[in-house]
Amino acid sequence: MEKIKLTIDGMAITADRGKTILEAALDNGIYIPHLCHHQDLAPAAVCRVCLVEVEGRGHTISCRTPVEEGLTISTESDHLNKIRRIPVELIFANHDTDCIACTRNNNCQLQRVASYLGLERDSMDRMRMGNIEKPIDTSNPFFDRNPNRCIYCGICIRTCDEIQNINAIDFASRGYKMTVSTFGDNPIADSRCESCGECVVRCPVGALSPKTTMEPSRSVKSVCTYCGVGCGVELGVRGNSVVSVEGDRDNAVNHGSLCVKGRYGFEFINHRERIRKPLIKKNGKFEESTWDEALDLVAKKFREYGKEKVAVFSSAKCSNEDNYVIQKFTRAVLGTNSIDHCARL
């Protein structure tokens, strides 16, 4: 990849050809305020806060302008702040600012931009407040859509289009009345949405928020347990419970993408109906037993029937190690090759 040399705020940096000024800056640890940019998506250039000054060109939208050899860029000036401060103040004038009640509190791009620009209550109060009591769409079992926190960056729409190719949502209506809408403005649950949650993950503010929002205390890498694609997951754990699943961006299979089952189908792990103890049927009813009692019973019965009378089903849901031990047991102990699993179903 060809390297381009440029200067940002007096620092000489290099970037791959094709990168935008914003990407080059972020890659080099220089923050330029931005709201509608997302690394996985094509630039939209709609929030207009990522303005920078390019020598010889004046103010320029950095998320859309590719780097060029020898560009001299400054990310900070009174002139820039004068232009980009207003859009942010305007967003706040139309935003439910009850941040404590928001799932994105402290992890919010809007908060970050506001603090970068030094916005204060007073300066926001000079604006006329917009309507922040629009109805919230709670129809999806996994996430809510709150238009009062929406900044109309279009990241959800672009995700659904560019990454998922589903196009369940798009902008509807014009100007100030513009909304993010499903076809016919139906609740999201009655739309084409497949609940993959990719938009929820990318929402830079709290407009799309998962319904269960327990913050995990640690995260563990594993592999999704559903289909054969083998997506990498990061299980969010709190105590002895799995409370969230996120796609593993480092995984070569899915690069962070997940489907609805992978992302939201984890409730079964700590489900109350999990079998917690060995069960032995006595007089037609299951009774809890100890491992020793159950295992001894099984071993005794298998021994009684002997070779060729016992068959084994292993599981395509179990690990390689499980399957290996089960087939080894079948062959080495039961003395039969009658082992199979549901590969054909």
């Binding site: 002895n240 419970s241 491992w291 295992l295 099984v298 071993a299 179990c318 690990s319 047991f329």
Partner: peptide, 26 residues
């Protein structure tokens, strides 16, 4: 593609990894 699963939580209740159970019977 062979991929690694890591144990995230301890087995729920008295449940055991499948390999452990098969090995115990063996």
């Amino acid at each position: 593609r062979v991929q690694r699963m890591h144990r995230a939580i301890k087995p729920v209740g008295d449940s055991k990894p499948d390999w452990w159970i098969a090995a115990e019977i063996a």
